[in-house]
Design a binder for these strands. Structure first.
Lengths: 227, 227
DNA sequence: CGACTGCTTGAAGAAATTCAATTTACGTGG
DNA sequence: CCACGTAAATTGAATTTCTTCAAGCAGTCG
């Protein structure tokens, strides 16, 4: 269940029980709750994978860097999302809090132990990984074959689905993050958003950084989000 | 074990036993062997996922299409690779044989049933899915942040690792497939390959379609494949 | 208050695409 | 067996898209 508060415009979960991992034959006990300040690193690429995480509130970006500093964000993790699940010993991503973020942590080892005996949990782990894979594959299509405006439209629709309960999308991330997610520059993202605004498809709400957006014409926006 | 024959220059596996799925606590019995002609469809997007596949010989491309025909290849499956593993009921990809291809098939249902009782197999399924996810994430980085020449260099290195036993890379796929894998056009792929040739990094062997390539300078090629 | 950050916009430039033409091999059919 | 048509790859020229560079504006924070 998603709850919207006036104070922070981000969705928030109230307990880890309402999640993909809970509800197996035996309940999962999260280690506890940790809070990360904006831009704080949660774990780095090639660090040993000790924990699995679920977002309680906030937003997380996971990215890779090329040696010369170019950055590609693979995914944003929003309330309810589980991340950090890996097979080998090490992560292959860096993750950071986009805004102040609260996470639930779970020892990976105990999850693995549990999964050995619990085939429902096991199935669930496959399911989570598969969902991540599907997202990545959709993202591959976007990055490889969509033009800038289509990328931004797809992004807005994804965010609209994932973090709005009202008609205002409050983006937790800035233009830089969006650009690195879509394989564009900040300028191109900004120009595309302006273009959508001029076309009457969306409008910016009062917010200073133009991170509050209302979709005015979903039909037109969807027509840009080819399937 | 990879065997190279003079007749076909593609690697080939001799039995499914030498694979990721076999070797669990109980052996996996593949349904049998099927052969697909070049360009034959193996399964289509949104088809119910009845089987899981392993490549015995040949090559498979899996791709998505946008409604206007733009195509993005997510992966090439080469001898030994397992694909078609999905969680839900339906595939989210179309797969086709790149060249004449022999596959081993396994009923998905029986694999699932087996996995319920066999935690080692279960673990293995997670492992395969995770590997696919890692590949997709690497591909996201390539598509989002690498320039044409770097994309082609990365592609060659990947193929070199995956399908050469000698010093000649025999590409099963044509330029169109490479382009759709790298998010480029055929012309750009061709120009990049020519450029690598002029730089003395690779050379084309006798083959008519310039699909036989020898890497002359691995050091230089690797320097284009940023990490 | 002033420096700073994040966002936007414009102009110039670069990279990749599109359009067009050529080459080469290959298969079909006279 | 050769001629013709087709398909794959390459190369060049023109064009488009996106990036880079530059400037400005608004809100925030010390």
């Amino acid at each position: 269940m998603l709850v919207r508060t006036a104070a922070d415009q981000m969705p928030r979960l109230n307990s880890p029980s309402e999640t993909a991992l809970a509800g197996g034959s035996s309940p999962i006990y999260w280690m506890g709750e940790f809070t990360y300040k904006r831009d704080a690193e949660i774990y780095g690429e090639k660090e040993p994978a000790e924990y699995v995480y679920q977002v309680k509130a906030g937003a997380v970006r996971s990215y890779k860097l090329l040696s010369d500093g170019r950055r590609q964000i693979g995914a944003f993790h929003l309330p309810g999302d589980i991340f950090g699940l890996t097979d080998g010993e090490a992560h292959w991503f860096t993750t950071e809090a986009v805004i102040d973020t609260t996470l639930w942590l779970l020892k990976r080892r105990s999850l693995e132990t549990e999964a050995r005996a619990d085939s429902i949990l096991s199935r669930r782990l496959i399911s989570i990984t598969t969902r991540n894979l599907q997202h990545a594959e959709d993202h591959v299509l976007l990055l490889g074959r969509k033009v800038a405006l289509e990328k931004v439209a797809t992004f807005l629709i994804e965010m609209d689905k994932r973090l709005t309960s009202a008609d205002v999308i409050t983006l937790p991330m800035g233009r830089r993050d969006i650009a690195d997610y879509l394989g564009l520059t900040v300028e191109t993202v900004s120009r595309s958003l302006s273009q959508l605004g001029r076309a009457g498809i969306l409008t910016f709400i009062g917010d200073t950084h133009h991170r509050e957006i209302t979709i005015l014409d979903r039909t037109q926006l969807l027509s840009l989000d080819l399937q």
